[in-house]
Each structure stands twice: as C-alpha cells, then as structure tokens.
C-alpha cells in the first residue's frame, strides 16, 4: 500500500497529539513583533506568550506566510518519507501560504503532490487534515482523498465571536470591518469563514449574547460529526461553550484549541469560536 502523508501549515490549530498520531507535516507561519520574527511552532513562539505580548505591545505584530524555501524543505522531506503528499494549506483567499505551497509543489515533484485549497482556517482546516489523514491510513488513494475533501468542505462551518473590535481596527485586515462596525462604541462582531473568506455573521454588544449566538449557530447545524471549540486565551469560556453544547456534540472527535496567531492578531484575547463538521445526511 503506497504511503500518503498530509502536509499543512500551523494555522490549522491541530493539537500536537494528533499531529504526532497522524504524522502530519506542519510548516509554521511567522509572527513579527517589529523586526523580531518568530515561528508559530510551539517552540520559538508559544501561543500563550503570543497573546500575553499582543495585549502589551503598542505596535501590533504582523503575521506572514512561511518562506518558500522552508516549505520546499518540508515537502521534500515528506516526499522522501512517503510515496505521495496531500498538501492542504489554509484558504487561498486568506493567505499567501496557498501560493507558496503551489510554488513548492512545482519545485519538488508535482506528480507526487496533490494540492488542495482547504477554503478554511483553524480547526475548520484542522478537521480536513484529520479526515484526510484517517483516509490515508485506511488506504484511500490521493484521488479519493481529494474528492472527499471537496465533498467535505461545504459541511464545515467556522464561527468566531470577537470580544472587542480593538484589534480588528488596528490590524485593518478585514475589509468589511470598516463598513458597519463604527467607532462610537464597542461591538462584538460574530464572523464566519465561508467559501474560503471571512464574512460578517452578526453583531452583538454583550459577551452573553455572543456566547448565545455561537450556541444557536451550532444548534442550527446539528447533527454534528466533529466539533472544536476555539479560543484566544479564554479557556474558561471555551469550556463553558463546550459544556453548553454537550447534548449535540459527538462523544469523540472533539477538541478545545487556542487559535492561530494569524487569526488571533485580529481577534485579540477572550475570543471564542466553533469549527464544526455537519453529519452527511
């Protein structure tokens, strides 16, 4: 049976034990505090430290795609260790990483790499990676995995509730933010990732309402096959959200993860989110 490895980037937010279990190859993204550049690999930059620094610095850090050279190295190694590589990076509409994966594919062995646009980020991407890895272990072919990903993508939803607009305003990254959020008082936007893009889902003014909006969204999408609760330095809130969905979440395939700095830099601390895979009906 030919061996297939899955390669992704660190915006997938996969818990370390799953990365080990499935031998996922992860290229780190980079966080720049001024001219200090740190890899989001849990070694150079620990996420808890990222959020601690985020609230204290005057100039917001920026995030950037990994170097092409490093991506080529990871891909080359994966191609040594396996017969075929499924390259599954963050949505091409959200980051330059997809293009870097594409260039890396061209420069290594295009015949042995299948590049798929995940159209997702965080554990929305993470679930695609896990499901692809499960299929690879079960002996699926690259073509079967690619077809399954395209079928899976419409069933994945990701929502996030920001505790404050402060970081989104400072980062300026989300285009719609300027349109309807204003600057006269604080609004807690609820956003979704859909079709590979970040969209405004709703706007609320209290954290209770934000929490309830996430719960309602999840319930509207039940039955759920896999569920991840996302948070930015807000484990208590994440646990409460997890418990509030106890009756609809699956017993297995659940996770609570702290979110990639690529998102966190716009969200700031105390954000909550959900990445769910709906059951195929």
């Amino acid at each position: 049976m030919p061996r297939i490895l899955i390669m992704t980037d660190s915006t997938c937010d996969l818990p370390a034990e799953w990365v080990r279990q499935y031998d996922i190859r992860v290229v780190p993204t980079y966080v720049q505090f001024d001219l200090e550049s740190l890899a989001d690999d849990g070694v150079e930059l620990v996420r808890a430290d990222f959020y601690r620094r985020l609230v204290s610095v005057s100039t917001l850090p920026t995030t950037s795609a990994p170097p092409l050279g490093q991506t080529i190295e990871v891909m080359t190694q994966a191609l040594k260790d396996a017969d075929h590589v499924i390259a599954l990076p963050v949505s091409s509409l959200l980051s330059a990483i997809y293009n870097i994966f594409r260039l890396a594919t061209e420069r290594t062995d295009p015949s042995r790499v299948t590049l798929i646009d995940s159209r997702m980020v965080s554990m929305g991407l993470g679930w695609e990676v896990v499901i692809a890895a499960e299929m690879a272990q079960a002996g699926a072919s690259p073509q079967e995995i690619e077809a399954a990903m395209l079928d899976l993508q419409p069933r994945i939803s990701l929502w996030a509730a920001l505790d404050t607009l402060k970081y989104l305003r400072r980062s300026g990254r989300v285009g719609w933010a300027a349109a309807m959020l204003g600057d006269l008082f604080d609004i807690k936007p609820v956003v979704s990732v859909s079709g590979g893009e970040v969209l405004s889902q709703s706007r609320v003014r209290t954290s209770k309402r934000a929490f309830q909006t996430l719960v309602d969204l999840a319930r509207q999408h039940a039955p759920i096959e896999r569920l991840a609760v996302l948070h930015t330095q807000y484990l208590d809130g994440a646990r409460q959200l997890f418990d509030a969905l106890a009756d609809i979440h699956p017993n297995t395939a659940v996770a609570i993860v702290d979110v990639t700095p690529v998102i966190g830099v716009h969200v700031g601390p105390n954000g909550l989110g959900l990445a769910v895979v709906r059951r195929n009906r």
Partner: peptide
C-alpha cells in the same frame, strides 16, 4: 531570499 522570504511581497 527564498529561505527567508516573508509574506506575499517577500515571496
């Protein structure tokens, strides 16, 4: 440049 490239413009 390739090993150290950052972001879109760097790439």
């Amino acid at each position: 440049a390739m090993m150290g490239s950052r972001g879109n413009s760097g790439t």
